[in-house]
């Protein structure tokens, strides 16, 4: 975290800045730390955690290692919700409009996937539903871009979609963080249900879990946390796919243990990725979402390659 704080486009003495921040003086270093670096760090930690957690929750809920908020279109739909609220200028009306737009979009996507793919642990139907949902979100975003008022607004939206933690203010963080916390709590509360669910839906019910309620809680949790995360950071893909997959063997594949550990590893991964993005920045800013996609894409291919036996 300190490493992350110490990195940025201008050199500051981190120790002095922290002291300055503590004692409340208004040196440039302290201001940079407070207004630029701290929000960025908090955001990286929170978004990483939320994406890791949501990925783990969706994989356990759908009993499918290929589920990921980004891959099946949840992030894109959240982005669509946010874009729509930006596009029509609603986002300026109240601070909560943007995250709520994102969360509504995310909720729609999760519901659509449930309806299309059902709840069987069938990889193919899940991915097909995800492709459909993703394509729909993509085309609607394209539509919004197509009719955007001016090129500047358009590039604004495109850049925002690419996903980054740069230039987010304390206000942005304060806007999204509560939703991420509440959403994550909802997901974590259903950890035991997710364990029971690995034995199948009926067995889970027979072990004392209300299927509809537990499912609804996870869907709402994912929608809240991913929706809020996307509305503040844009689209950062594949984290929810890769992180739970790497963590799973370390927790003996138990869904309940996977949740928190994926969140932690997700945070760490996101911090590291955001550090790398800044270290290797050369003039033009390298967007974090681009980097995770570059890493995650090949990983996804590898995963399909490894799992392909179960689909033929």
């Amino acid at each position: 975290m300190l490493w992350h704080l110490s990195i940025g486009s201008s050199q500051i003495d981190l120790l002095a800045a922290l002291q300055g921040l503590w004692s409340g003086d208004e040196s440039i270093a302290a201001t940079i730390l407070r207004d630029i670096r701290l929000p960025r760090m908090v955001l990286a930690v929170a978004v990483g955690a939320v994406l890791g957690l949501s990925g783990a929750a969706m994989q356990s809920l759908l009993r499918n290692p290929l589920a990921d908020p980004g891959l099946v279109g949840v992030s894109n739909f959240a982005a669509l919700g946010a874009v729509i609220s930006l596009y029509f200028g609603w986002a300026a009306m109240a601070w909560w409009v943007l995250p709520v737009g994102g969360m509504l979009g995310a909720a729609m996507a999760v519901l659509a996937i449930f309806t299309l793919a059902g709840l069987q642990s069938n990889g193919l139907s899940l991915i097909l539903a995800g492709v459909a949902v993703n394509a729909l979100a993509g085309s609607l975003i394209a539509l919004a871009l197509n009719f955007s008022a001016n090129p500047y607004a358009m590039s604004e939206i495109v850049y925002w979609l690419l996903g980054s933690f740069a230039n987010r203010s304390v206000v942005d963080v304060a806007m999204a963080l509560p939703f991420m916390v509440v959403g994550s709590a909802a997901i974590l509360l259903s950890k035991n249900f997710l364990d029971a669910l690995s034995l199948g839906e009926e067995t889970a019910q027979s072990l004392g879990y209300d299927l509809l309620r537990q499912r609804a809680m996870i869907i709402i949790g994912v929608a809240l946390s991913v929706g809020a995360a996307v509305s503040v950071s844009g689209n950062i893909g594949f984290v929810g796919l890769v992180i739970p997959h790497l963590v799973r063997p370390l927790v003996q594949h138990r869904p309940s243990k996977l949740l928190l550990s994926s969140a932690l590893v997700g945070s760490g991964f996101m911090l590291l990725a955001d550090i790398l993005v800044q270290v290797f920045a050369t003039g033009q800013e390298l967007k974090l979402g681009v980097v995770t996609a570059l890493v995650g894409g090949p990983f996804f291919l590898w995963l399909i390659w490894r799992l392909r036996r179960s689909y033929v």
């Binding site: 356990s60 642990s121 669910l197 690995s198 034995l199 199948g200 067995t203 027979s206 594949h253």
Partner: peptide, 13 residues
């Protein structure tokens, strides 16, 4: 307690 017809376990627990 209920045991349905055999179903695979979702994860290699």
């Amino acid at each position: 307690a209920y045991m349905p017809q055999q179903q695979p376990v979702a994860w290699p627990l």
